[in-house]
Amino acid sequence: MSDQEAKPSTEDLGDKKEGEYIKLKVIGQDSSEIHFKVKMTTHLKKLKESYCQRQGVPMNSLRFLFEGQRIADNHTPKELGMEEEDVIEVYQEQTGGHSTV
């Protein structure tokens, strides 16, 4: 019986991991920090939209990076291997420009 009891508790931990929340720091170019608590399985588009709304800027005017890689709207913290207190960097999107060649 103890084996049966242990097995469901392991499964519960697996389920808990799926719905687990982590805190992420979003740091802007001006070094301002906003902290977000997100589920591991939530699409990061929600975090990006919330950040842009707080900053009063359109979402397409900023780019969000985690460990140097651009974050897509459909990425989740779990897919990117994010952990508690990880940092997302935000930069002004640069458009235009010309070749110097």
Rank of each mutant, 00 (worst) to 15 (best):
10 T>P: 11
81 G>Q: 12
70 R>V: 12
22 I>F: 05
13 L>A: 14
93 E>V: 08
67 E>N: 13
56 G>W: 03
3 D>A: 09
65 L>P: 04
55 Q>V: 15
66 F>I: 04
74 N>H: 08
87 V>S: 11
34 I>R: 06
3 D>W: 06
88 I>Y: 03
26 V>H: 00
46 K>Y: 11
93 E>K: 06
85 E>W: 15
67 E>S: 05
43 H>G: 10
37 K>R: 14
37 K>E: 03
7 K>R: 12
17 K>F: 08
24 L>C: 09
63 R>S: 07
96 G>I: 01
19 G>D: 11
76 T>G: 05
94 Q>K: 07
55 Q>C: 13
59 M>N: 11
29 Q>Y: 07
16 K>V: 10
7 K>M: 02
16 K>W: 06
20 E>D: 11
90 V>D: 03
68 G>P: 06
66 F>Q: 02
76 T>N: 01
43 H>D: 11
26 V>L: 15
39 K>F: 00
36 F>G: 03
7 K>P: 10
5 E>L: 10
91 Y>I: 00
8 P>V: 04
94 Q>N: 05
30 D>W: 03
71 I>R: 03
80 L>V: 02
64 F>P: 03
90 V>P: 05
48 K>V: 02
61 S>A: 09
18 E>K: 13
81 G>I: 04
28 G>R: 10
84 E>H: 04
54 R>A: 02
55 Q>N: 09
61 S>L: 09
16 K>A: 12
70 R>Q: 15
28 G>W: 08
79 E>Y: 15
67 E>I: 01
29 Q>T: 06
92 Q>C: 13
92 Q>Y: 10
65 L>W: 00
80 L>G: 01
2 S>D: 14
53 Q>S: 15
44 L>M: 14
35 H>N: 09
37 K>A: 13
34 I>V: 12
25 K>H: 15
58 P>Q: 07
32 S>P: 04
72 A>Y: 12
3 D>H: 11
33 E>M: 05
24 L>E: 00
60 N>M: 04
6 A>V: 14
52 C>E: 03
3 D>Y: 08
48 K>G: 01
84 E>F: 12
34 I>P: 04
39 K>S: 09
79 E>Q: 07
50 S>C: 15
95 T>R: 14
27 I>W: 14
80 L>Q: 01
22 I>A: 03
29 Q>G: 01
63 R>V: 07
75 H>I: 07
48 K>F: 01
6 A>Y: 06
30 D>L: 06
49 E>D: 07
40 M>L: 14
61 S>M: 07
62 L>N: 06
52 C>K: 00
19 G>P: 09
15 D>S: 09
12 D>R: 13
82 M>E: 04
87 V>I: 13
7 K>S: 09
49 E>P: 00
30 D>R: 09
84 E>L: 05
76 T>V: 01
60 N>A: 06
89 E>P: 00
95 T>Y: 00
37 K>I: 02
28 G>Q: 06
12 D>S: 12
10 T>I: 13
15 D>L: 10
50 S>K: 05
55 Q>I: 15
83 E>Q: 06
92 Q>T: 12
19 G>A: 11
57 V>R: 15
48 K>R: 01
19 G>R: 14
45 K>H: 10
46 K>P: 02
15 D>K: 10
87 V>G: 07
76 T>W: 04
7 K>W: 08
93 E>L: 07
27 I>N: 09
69 Q>G: 08
15 D>F: 10
42 T>A: 09
90 V>L: 03
32 S>N: 12
78 K>A: 10
45 K>Y: 05
7 K>I: 14
9 S>E: 12
63 R>W: 13
77 P>L: 01
33 E>F: 01
78 K>R: 15
38 V>T: 12
85 E>I: 05
58 P>W: 00
27 I>E: 00
50 S>Q: 15
22 I>S: 06
24 L>I: 07
34 I>Y: 05
27 I>V: 10
75 H>K: 06
75 H>P: 07
20 E>F: 12
75 H>R: 06
14 G>S: 08
9 S>M: 08
82 M>P: 03
79 E>D: 12
88 I>L: 07
97 G>P: 00
34 I>W: 00
14 G>L: 14
3 D>P: 07
77 P>E: 05
32 S>D: 04
55 Q>Y: 14
5 E>V: 14
27 I>G: 03
5 E>Q: 13
94 Q>S: 13
21 Y>H: 15
29 Q>R: 14
84 E>S: 13
41 T>K: 05
75 H>Y: 07
13 L>K: 13
62 L>T: 03
17 K>T: 15
67 E>F: 14
83 E>Y: 12
51 Y>G: 01
81 G>T: 00
51 Y>M: 01
7 K>T: 11
16 K>P: 12
25 K>R: 13
9 S>A: 13
68 G>T: 02
46 K>V: 09
92 Q>V: 14
60 N>L: 04
9 S>P: 15
70 R>S: 14
76 T>R: 03
64 F>N: 00
2 S>M: 11
95 T>D: 00
14 G>P: 01
41 T>D: 00
36 F>Y: 09
23 K>V: 12
77 P>Y: 01
90 V>F: 05
76 T>H: 00
67 E>L: 09
45 K>F: 05
78 K>V: 10
66 F>G: 03
66 F>T: 03
87 V>K: 11
31 S>I: 08
74 N>T: 11
77 P>W: 00
91 Y>L: 08
45 K>G: 15
95 T>H: 05
27 I>C: 07
86 D>P: 04
34 I>G: 02
33 E>N: 06
31 S>T: 08
23 K>S: 11
97 G>C: 03
21 Y>N: 09
14 G>D: 12
60 N>W: 08
25 K>W: 01
89 E>G: 12
91 Y>F: 10
9 S>R: 11
25 K>Y: 02
36 F>T: 00
21 Y>F: 14
